[in-house]
Amino acid sequence: MSDTEGTEPASTEVQEAKAKYVGFVFDTATFTAEQDKMLAWAESVGETDPRFTDPSNPDFQAHPTFTASLVSRRVLPEDFPKIGGPRGIDGGKAVVIQQPIRPGDRLKASATIADIYEKTGRSGTMTFIVQRMSFVNQNDEPVSMVDWKMIRNP
């Protein structure tokens, strides 16, 4: 999630997709932060910090990357072109944590395409589609931003 993310795209179809889709909200979703899920997440990864494992702790909150699992109904815009090929690989997730998420918080998320670019690697030609989910809580305070790098290749 560097500020220099992406480079000039190489192919025309990627250039066109980038111009058409980057930056526009294509879906929204709401989620409730459930205490049992927050707890199960922290316990499953061996967390030992009581802020994440003890609901009676006054600072009890979701594990930092909890929002990485929350996805909108649409992963890509409805009319998004089939660029890059049929194979999909999860290239990575970058999570920015802005506020703690507490049990019962109502999270509103908006989904945008943050970037589209091409490069080559061990898997061959790869098209990177970066989907960004921005979360705010019931007070409209930003709580988290997740960039998901989806890789498509032939």
């Binding site: 560097s2 500020d3 220099t4 993310e5 480079t7 490069k119 990177f128």
Partner: peptide, 8 residues
Amino acid sequence: SVRSDDGR
């Protein structure tokens, strides 16, 4: 460096 898309 951070000037590359995947550099951190």
